[in-house]
């Protein structure tokens, strides 16, 4: 019995290692940094609308960024469940469940200056695609899609991207 307790104690003390970051928090951190590292056309808006579309976990993780200055404006997080307001967004993080709606989303966005992000393999037609690779989170850039949206990723982003799809 005492062996058992000792073993258990040992098992539970094997915890001293560097803090990894939870998936959704890391994704939110990436998304925020994509916004920091990109350029939008001039706009008179006061708020910077950071939207998630049916992606509540990333949306919740983004809340700790709320109120931060971004592109000279105030960051506001909006967790959307329908396409109605997506044209008001500057960043749109699209949930995996929206794969069937992707063409409609892109059609509705047209050339609105919206940085589209997704982590779903089925949503590769977005500007920034996130992917888990082993223990790391990596991203690919689709410059044609970004150009259509008139959003310009910085050289830093181009350098850090795993893959850059050029127009």
């Amino acid at each position: 019995m005492h062996y058992f307790i000792t073993l258990l104690s040992l098992a539970f003390s094997l915890t001293a290692f560097a803090d990894p970051v939870a998936e959704y928090q890391l994704k939110a951190g990436y998304a925020y940094n994509f916004a920091v590292n990109s350029e939008w056309p001039e706009s008179g808006r006061v708020n910077f609308n950071f939207c998630t579309l049916n992606e509540d976990n990333v949306g919740l993780a983004l809340r700790r960024f709320e109120g931060k200055p971004l592109q000279g404006r105030r960051l506001v997080v909006a967790r959307l469940t329908s396409l109605v307001a997506i044209n008001q967004c500057q960043v749109l993080y699209i949930g995996a469940g929206e794969a069937v709606n992707l063409s409609r989303i892109l059609r509705q966005l047209g050339d609105e200056a919206v940085l589209t992000i997704s982590d779903s393999p089925a949503l590769s037609a977005v500007c920034v695609k996130l992917e888990l690779e082993g223990e790391r989170l990596v991203f690919d850039l689709n410059l044609e899609r970004c150009r259509q949206a008139r959003v310009k990723p910085s050289a830093n982003m181009l350098r850090l991207a795993r893959e850059v799809l050029k127009p």
Binding site: V21, Y24, M157
Partner: peptide
């Protein structure tokens, strides 16, 4: 994590959901 840059974030391990 809100204070980390993209370079810093990219060196962090992720705990999958």
């Amino acid at each position: 994590i809100a204070d980390l840059s993209l370079d810093q974030l990219m060196h962090r391990d992720v705990v999958r959901a």
